[in-house]
Design a protein around this nucleic acid. Sequence first.
DNA 1: CCATTTTGGAGAATCATTCTCCAAGGAGAC
DNA 2: GTCTCCTTGGAGAATGATTCTCCAAAATGG
Lengths: 151, 151
Amino acid sequence: MKKQKSDVERFAQHCRSHGLSVTHQRLAIFEALAASREHPSAEQLHRAVQRRIPTLSLATVYKNLEALKTIGAVMDVNPLHEEGRYEAALPGTGAGKPHHHLVCISCKKVRDLYDGGLDRLRIADAQGFDVRAVRVQAEGLCPECRARSRV
Amino acid sequence: MKKQKSDVERFAQHCRSHGLSVTHQRLAIFEALAASREHPSAEQLHRAVQRRIPTLSLATVYKNLEALKTIGAVMDVNPLHEEGRYEAALPGTGAGKPHHHLVCISCKKVRDLYDGGLDRLRIADAQGFDVRAVRVQAEGLCPECRARSRV
DNA sequence: CCATTTTGGAGAATCATTCTCCAAGGAGAC
DNA sequence: GTCTCCTTGGAGAATGATTCTCCAAAATGG
Ligand SMILES: [Mn+2]
Ligand SMILES: [Mn+2]
Ligand SMILES: [Zn+2]
Ligand SMILES: [Zn+2]
């Protein structure tokens, strides 16, 4: 009977050690997320947790996901989902040849990354998916942001 | 003087062969995109093209990006940018260990992809970026959607 | 140039996400 | 447990990106 509590306790301590209090809303949101393998949206999580806490508001779900991301208890599956970014795709233009991207986590700039090794990636266990394309996104600090943060 | 026209001509023919008429707005949007290496947003493109066509509306930019994506003249840099998707990230939970994702281009479902080979990826030419993480997203049709489309 | 069809502009509408404001609920000290 | 203090939650408005509606303008094909 210690086992059952350990996940919750680990979460509670993670919160406290990062200065976040452990409310039952926060805990329920995390539990729902941890119990799912569906990579749910905020809306889906809201619906799931509302079965336990009918008064839970959607804004609270967003606030908590953001807070939990900050302390590393939750991850965002989508790289770069705030605003659409485009590139031309005809021969001769930027995306004329397949390539990948370097994305700055600070200023959001996107640079093309041509790397023959990455183009040859094969997915070992595609779990029945008919894989049409593989996108690689390398995330980090761009030279400008590195310089700025080193001040 | 043939060279300069060839890109425009190639684009025009690509449009016509896919049943899209070639308006100067559409052409200007594509030219602005092809001339940029910044992976611009719709808003940025709008500002750029407005210098040539002051009456251009933002909705027109979106309509055209969508139309051009459909015929493959434009690509969307962001995988999955419509709605945030989350996962737990503490030991014992889904993202407790680093992993990648299989995404269905039809129903948008996201499955975890554990692949030791992908975890060992190294970026050959990081162009000065301090790379902190590499995300791989394999896109294709999930088993359910394959079955449905094969009807 | 004519008729047909597609497209563009303006602005409203929609959808996801964030913010504001105030009351309720945790955390740590007695 | 009780008392504070500070964080958090709820409600709904606000925001920002994207889409839709409606009509006039422009492109196409002859
Ligand atoms: Mn690119
Ligand atoms: Mn995952
Ligand atoms: Zn940067
Ligand atoms: Zn699917």
